[in-house]
Write a protein that binds this DNA or RNA. Sequence first.
DNA 1: GATGAATGAGCGTTCATTCAT
DNA 2: GATGAATGAACGCTCATTCAT
Lengths: 208, 208, 208, 208
Amino acid sequence: MARRAPTEPRKFASQERSRATVDALVEATARILVKEGFDKASTNRIAEVAGVSVGSLYQYFPGKEALVAAVDERHKQQVMQTVRGELAGILDQPVEQGVRKIVALAVKAHRVDPKLHRVLAEQIPRVGKLEALGTFNRENYTLFRTYLESRQHELRVDDLDLASFVCVTTIEALTHNAVLHHPKMLSGDMMEALIDEAARLVTGYLKR
Amino acid sequence: MARRAPTEPRKFASQERSRATVDALVEATARILVKEGFDKASTNRIAEVAGVSVGSLYQYFPGKEALVAAVDERHKQQVMQTVRGELAGILDQPVEQGVRKIVALAVKAHRVDPKLHRVLAEQIPRVGKLEALGTFNRENYTLFRTYLESRQHELRVDDLDLASFVCVTTIEALTHNAVLHHPKMLSGDMMEALIDEAARLVTGYLKR
Amino acid sequence: MARRAPTEPRKFASQERSRATVDALVEATARILVKEGFDKASTNRIAEVAGVSVGSLYQYFPGKEALVAAVDERHKQQVMQTVRGELAGILDQPVEQGVRKIVALAVKAHRVDPKLHRVLAEQIPRVGKLEALGTFNRENYTLFRTYLESRQHELRVDDLDLASFVCVTTIEALTHNAVLHHPKMLSGDMMEALIDEAARLVTGYLKR
Amino acid sequence: MARRAPTEPRKFASQERSRATVDALVEATARILVKEGFDKASTNRIAEVAGVSVGSLYQYFPGKEALVAAVDERHKQQVMQTVRGELAGILDQPVEQGVRKIVALAVKAHRVDPKLHRVLAEQIPRVGKLEALGTFNRENYTLFRTYLESRQHELRVDDLDLASFVCVTTIEALTHNAVLHHPKMLSGDMMEALIDEAARLVTGYLKR
DNA sequence: GATGAATGAGCGTTCATTCAT
DNA sequence: GATGAATGAACGCTCATTCAT
């Protein structure tokens, strides 16, 4: 039943076009979010900035919320790309060094697109489809738990779920707060100091 | 209901009335925020629930943001009332016991009006006059720093600003996260476990 | 508790203002309906023609449908005003004359605002709140049934409900059709002829 | 599925395909009209349900109105097929029996696809190209007039145009109203009663 | 002071129609 | 012919704010 066409050119062209439109919309949303804030991110504005008609916006996204969710998702992916790569080399390091690197990595993660991260964290109302958006980052939690498992012999804690919750929450809060609300902490020696403190905090808690 | 003796100045009655109106408006805003969410908290609706005309609302508040800020302020006052009172008895306790009580107090603080706390934390866009709303709680920070000063002989840390930042951020994040996103943690033994962990985390970091 | 004010001027003025706005909106809707059709009767357009803001429109009407329903209601009232007055003098007339006058009255009723009547009949989708709009006219039915009751001794029919249904439907259809789709029938002798025919049709059916 | 002998012209296949597409579109329109109403019958939706692209829709129909008109036309054809067949056997019957059968036939006609009939009657705005859609059914009128001509010797009426108008309008209105708004009338004895009444009404009017 | 009717910019969304592929 | 992505005018509606009374 399949019609043979030369390397399916029609569909491909079409797919490319669609993809470009979707990307432009997500990108436009992110830009408006960063430059003008959530309030200004109206569907018409987003479409305009994306160089696309509102109609097309609704062809690909059921509404404004879906666009913001897509931006959040894209941002998370970008961050996780950084994290996952570097984390590989940390997995077999002892807690002392490993935790420090994880903290440093968390700082790095918060610097991927700090302005966007901030808007996402502070301006998006957790309502409707966006309700679950900012909730506890499950992947971070899982990754960290995996690390703890491989280092269990070094640890004084037995409830790894609880320990992961404590550590991930702590590291996330410290780096988030430092990057977003105390940027001066992140320059020069201060950054090293903060990382040291956070690492010591967590290491002391974990190590036997 | 008899007319008051002319001794009682009109101005007072008027002041009382103003105060009542303001209170009714703040209370109405808080109720709507909790029951229906930020989206539904329109000025007209707030005035209606407060039993007051929109016009009067604008007599006492420059706009919607001011009302939400007032709700936030009132909530913070209520929390700090709890905190300040209990904190007095903690100030002269050694770190080991003191920190544990502070953590427990933080949990208690998050339970003053958790629904309102949640709406304030998750639905209010940090924009315009509300931008500073969710920022680092200065008073908590100051109080904690004072405690550290009085206990400095027990501590291994010298930079009390940095240590306060680390501790307050950590305690706040853990209790906030637990209350808002892991409510099961806050019931029965789990709560004790969490408090123990958090206290150990912080104590281990601080103590010599 | 009631504040005494000189003949309640505030409330009255306010009531008058509201009433004027409501009237202007209904009138504007009717005018647009007649001159441009249902499709053009958008809420913004209606408000504009009424010399009022859209906001005010929504202060008084929950939506477009309610406005059309109000126009329909107003039209029905105007028609029934004509009908009820003249019908009084017919009630005690024998079927022969009575029915003829009722038919003539039906023609008159269809001429109250034929253009509006037509739009209401032909362009308003019977959907949502407007679903019941054009349904069988209960008052006409009741009035006619009352007439039949008072003339029962002259009639060959016993089921007055059925007879009323038959007669009202017939008279309504004939006059409606004639006025709206065969206007030439309604000028000069033709009108008399039609009325004669309709009257004879119904009389023959009813009379013993 | 083997390729046809070249005898069969391509053009025919093409014509067949066109015809199938047109049918699918009209059928899809009818189905949506019945199941979801006129409001939901957007061109995109129609094309989707028909399994055809919007572009193809516009290849065969100049616009949405044309589709609805085609549905109406098809429905009318289906009804008239029923009517014409049965009417043949009535033509030479005396008024007494003939009219009764015509009324019964009108009821039957209204039951061909009552849901579609209803949507067509109540939801389609008589505007633009659809303006003439609900107008007086000329064919019914002609057919009935023909019948009257052949029975003229039995009749007391001379103006057969006028009489046809009166009768067709009456029968149409009664059956339409009964089917659409008083469905209980159309079940069991009630239906017979209604047909009797309508037949008597019209016969009494016509017969010498 | 208090009232609440009025405002109108601007929002999210739909859909008949077009046209490059 | 067929496709379906793209268009954009226009719709119904909301709500923070104003101001005549």
